[in-house]
Design a protein around this nucleic acid. Structure first.
Length: 346
DNA sequence: ATCCATGATTTATA
DNA sequence: TATAAATCATGGAT
């Protein structure tokens, strides 16, 4: 804002500060009898112009009107034009084309990618898809989180859009205000359309920098939201009971060699509705934690051993051998040296 | 508020 | 490259 004001003042300054030469100029030119009166007259007007900022609006308006109606006004205007011609050179050189700010582009791209600045619902689903991808395709129990995420994202998007609209409106209002002001002033002092355009550009730049701040904070909010909801590590979810049982069952029934093959991992992943990587993680954690404190897991081990034993018994009593759990082990085979030859497909 | 369980990540190792 | 081991960070119980 201050840039505009400054510039406007400097314009005013150019117009006004150039004046002091004027009376002299006039004085020289007019040697006649009514010259003194005219000089006095113009001196008054100039004095009024110089002090116009100290006056109330109505007063100023009246003075302006008086000035515009004054018979010397065209001459004054011409002089202002001349003065400006001599002093305005510096403005011309400034560049007009503004290269797109890379940071702004980055923010725009991100907002678009997150579905904040894009179309209303399409962006949301894209973000949801990204969410699903980011969360490692973990099971069905996070759909609630996704909807939660979506509502939060929608909130952000709404805030973003209302703010953006507000800025847009404010920018337009301010621009038209300034343009009106300049047009009004152009009756009294020379203002080229190009200067108005420049001013409009300055305003727009200022407002777009405000918009950039909005975009930046929106991006931040989205990032926080993402990390809160979608970073799998932060949003650790225990596997459901069934999955844990399946994994434990496998672990304790293969205690002597709890290293599921790739195929077995895939099978387990499918059964537990988790990824193969999660199966690997689980076995990695389980092995090391079991080894570190066998005592703590003794009860669990016994339980699963008993369960598999029952399963085996049931299976054999039903005469079906095809599905029986393969070579269940008694607890304690891992990590102590294992002499059983329980070789699975590796 | 604190502690423990647990899934994920990182680093080291063979 | 798979695994071991250490570590992180959260969920959930207390």
């Amino acid at each position: 804002m201050d840039e505009q004001t400054r510039l406007m003042h400097s314009h005013t300054g150019v117009g006004m500060a150039g004046h002091p030469g004027l009376p002299q100029h006039m004085q020289e030119g007019t040697g006649g009898t009514d010259g003194d009166g005219r000089k006095q007259d113009i001196g008054d007007i100039l004095q009024q112009i110089m002090t116009i900022t100290d006056q109330s609006l109505d007063e100023a308006q009246a003075r302006k009107h008086a000035l515009n109606c004054h018979r010397m006004k065209p001459a004054l205007f011409n002089v202002l034009c001349e003065i400006k011609e001599k002093t305005v050179l510096s403005i011309r050189g400034t560049q007009e084309d503004e290269p797109p700010d890379p940071q702004l582009m980055r923010l725009d791209n991100m907002l678009l990618a997150e579905g904040v600045s894009g179309p209303e619902k399409g962006g949301g689903s894209a973000a949801a898809a990204a969410a699903a991808a980011a969360s490692g395709g973990a099971g069905p129990d996070n759909s609630a989180e996704h909807s939660d995420y979506r509502t939060k994202l929608t909130q952000i998007r709404q805030i973003y859009h209302t703010e953006l609209e507000k800025y847009e409106q404010a920018c337009n209002e301010f621009t038209t205000h300034v343009m009106n002001l300049l047009r009004e002033q152009s009756r009294t002092r020379p203002i080229s359309p190009k200067e108005i355009e420049r001013m409009v550009n300055i305003i727009h730049r200022k407002f777009s920098s405000i918009q950039m701040q909005l975009k930046q904070s929106t991006c931040e909010a989205v990032m926080i939201l993402r990390s809160r909801f979608l970073d799998a590590r932060r949003k650790r979810r225990n596997f459901n009971k069934q999955a844990t049982e399946i994994l434990n069952e496998y672990f304790y029934s293969h205690l002597s060699n709890p290293y599921p093959s790739e195929e077995a991992k895939e099978e387990l992943a499918k059964k537990c509705a988790i990824t193969v990587a999660q199966v690997s993680n689980w076995f990695g954690n389980k092995r090391i934690r079991y080894k570190k404190n066998i005592g703590k897991f003794q009860e669990e081990a016994n339980m699963y051993a008993a369960r598999t034993a029952v399963n085996a018994a049931n299976a054999s009593s039903h005469g079906s051998q095809a599905n029986s759990p393969s070579t269940p082990n008694s607890a304690g085979g891992y990590p102590s040296p294992c002499y059983q030859s329980d070789r699975r497909i590796q």
